[in-house]
Design a protein around this nucleic acid. Sequence first.
RNA 1: GCCCGGAUGGUGGAAUGGUAGACACGAAGGACUUAAAAUCCUUUGGCUUCACGGCUGUGCGGGUUCAAGUCCCGCUUCGGGUACCA
Length: 940
Amino acid sequence: MHLIFSQNKALHFQFFNTNFHYIMEYNFSDIEKKWQLYWKENNTYKSEIDKLRPKYYVLDMFPYPSGAGLHVGHPLGYIASDIFSRYKRLQGFNVLHPMGYDAYGLPAEQYAIQTGQHPAVTTKINIARYREQLEKIGFCYDWDREIRTCEPDYYHWTQWAFIQMFNHYFDTKLQKAQPISSLVKAFETSGTEGIRANCTEEICFSAADWKAKSEKGQQEILLNYRIAYLADLKVNWCSALGTVLANDEVSEGVSVRGGHPVEQRVMRQWSLRVSAYAQRLLDGLNTIDWTESLKETQKNWIGRSEGAELKFNVKGQDFNFEVFTTRADTIYGVTFMVLAPESELVKQLTTTEQKANVENYITATKKRTERERIADRRVTGVFSGSYALNPVSGTTIPIWISDYVLAGYGTGAIMAVPAHDSRDYAFAKHFNLPIIPLIEGCDVSEESFDAKDGIMENSGFLNGLSVNEAIAKAKEYIAEKGLGRVKVNFRLRDAIFSRQRYWGEPFPVYYKEGMPYMLDESKLPLELPEVDKFLPTEKGEPPLGRAIGWEVDGFPLELNTMPGFAGSSAYYLRYMDQKNDKALVSPEANQYWRNVDLYIGGTEHATGHLIYSRFWNKFLFDLGLICEEEPFKKLINQGMIQGRSNFVYRIKDTNTFVSLNLKDQYETTQLHVDVNIVSNDILDTVKFRNWIPEYKTAEFILEDGKYHCGWAVEKMSKSMYNVVNPDDIVEKYGADTLRLYEMFLGPLEQSKPWDTNGIDGVHRFLKKLWSLFYKDDNLLVTNELPSTDELKTLHKTIKKITFDIENFSYNTSVSAFMICVNELFTLKCNKKAILEPLSILLAPFAPHIAEELYHILGNEETVCDAQFPVCNEAYLLESSVKYPISFNGKVRFMLELPATMSKEDVEKTAMANEQTLKYLEGKVPKKIIVVPGKIVNIVI
RNA sequence: GCCCGGAUGGUGGAAUGGUAGACACGAAGGACUUAAAAUCCUUUGGCUUCACGGCUGUGCGGGUUCAAGUCCCGCUUCGGGUACCA
């Protein structure tokens, strides 16, 4: 019986006052607009604390709103997280799924410098565009919680956190942040005696010393301990851009942007004592569910190395210095020492005779950036004139200066063991210094032996030990004899937190006698002032130097602004309680939402944002302000969507273009062509002529009447003309198709090229699904009881989809949906009992069509609040199994047998089969393997 | 250099050690149509055979196993990250 549902149109479309009639064909455009409006008007995606339901927090890495808008690669991760959010909600979780904008950044400011357009204006426009694009895709974001890092009510809390960092130090024994006031108390009673505080520089003083110091002197000392501190640091300074640049913004001594010269300069900069948290950042990795490769990247970045700090006396002077080594076992092989050119020791150890040489060398190296030094591996160096004494063997060894040693790591000085370190080896060969092999049988005539295995020789008391034994014994010896101490070093550096830029958070800092003081918290937010130009002042101060009245109570305010990562370090907490003007997040909201259950974003943030936000979060945790030590419990990196470029071939010196397979007959130039005027690699020649004026008169040499383009996978970028805009896809196919296709492209975590051509497949799938509901203008849906085949198809799909969502294998879910619909189509199934669970199942992936179908089936509530179907295994039971019968592993034929048949009977039946006899060729099988329900293998 | 990923048809990709190529795209052929679009049906890894079928096949070379795309060893190659970190 076919039954046409008589639905309550008035109720169904109560939010439309027009005569909206049923859509009989799959009109995605109307359907999507309709439901997007419905969701908005019904606050479907509003999330609130609900202690009766378990929470689930799904977060996307929020975007920087660039002027170019979103391309088709950007939403990939957003779609994935959206699917998971919707899935969790269907399972009864209270889902928090917010979105916002990382709104401060260089591009808007560069644009401002060029055009005079205020970055706030540009940013606002860009955000509006992003929002419009995102809304078209049908995400379930709770837009009421939107944040923008450039808004005062947001950066209020960035500034606030900075003040807390200024007011705390890191206790190395407790391994947590403590109020700076307790450090002051300790100084007052016993000076630095017994304090365990992470610091920039080891200093010692008594309580009396402390008390004798002026206010300014005390403040200067406290900067040595504060978690947010001001210190003189070596930076890449670009005077033309008027700012410090990060290492990756500099190449070959010039700025990447603009090609302006960059010099090394020591500047007083704000920094965050991230390195104090190194051990905890490392340990925390064991508690979170991130990919191994990402954890590995962070481990390497943190770079923990255990070793020893060894004291070396200088020959003929009452002076010693320390080096850090992880290879204390190689102490007998030290044939020279090397100091970093920037090391304080250089001055001390350069002899009068060598002074001129050393100064020349230092001037030469100063000109080069760290990056250049790395790129250019020529061995350079100069002898200091001094000698050190080996603390173990007592031998005299020359002290050199070379830029292959970094001032910022360890002590800025090393003991060189050329036989067992390739860098020391290169240096020794170049300057003809001795090389002493320390491991039996190793050959150091051509290269060093860096491996940590073998038996020690030429090493006094370490002889005969293995390398690992020798390392342990040497460390023991060093500690015992007081020659040094066992030490752990980290590669992780403190984060430079100042930018000489306009478009960033102002520091809540003013200066008195050159010393920084924090604004009172009641004065926050300190709003970004207006300036006449977004350029440095005549005096070379940052742009804020132009702001009129940039001071408090007559004291000047800080002129630097905060860097990009400031606003993104705690944003996940703010989403929990976005409108709170009393705190970053209320304890109540934080206790409920706790931390991010699922975070999806790109790998490019592995060592930046993901380290800084973990640090920032741990700091707030230490203060007892939040309840979770790690911000992101599970993290998934979506792969990059690459572009798929198309090419045309122009015959040299003509305006004639030759098709791909004929191009070798001519001398041609390969040119990129806009992928949007190419379909299945066939060029639309009319559109091509209208594309660029130069091609107006283009001629074509075709093959079978078509112009075939070449193609290649490249980065998606404007200059390659391979950018695809999601708006165009939504316009042509709808958001549901876009969502499904992005997922269908391949595994979420893998990089893959975007090729719009495949999209017809998923669009056809949706139309086919629709056709299960409607034929022409008739609703086909019936209330008949489903058959076992139909139930099997449905439950098989439920099982697969559930498994795939849990495993983020969305590409195979889309396939599973296709298989399901194909089967239902073949079965001519129009039964509500099947179609309703299917529409719920599909809702996370294609929410608009699912919502429409769900309502067509007579439901009046949103599909978002339905219950996710559960697989009933009973429907999946098969009565028979098709056994592949194989001989020596090669499958020869199939044999259908009852599922309940015993292993022995399967074997008997298979052996008795006449085809088996044929393949046995009269031989007796050596072995017969029967895997029940799977396969039979006969070995002959 | 080091670390992490990949490598499967013309293309994107699928496959708890158990029928390699699911699902799609493209292509070819057909149906419907005045035509086009849309839709539907068939074929589609390679070689071979009139056909049944056979051989071969997951970057390369070995190995483990009754059975390997999958596990182990040694390479090639392409991406990504990172780098004088002592």
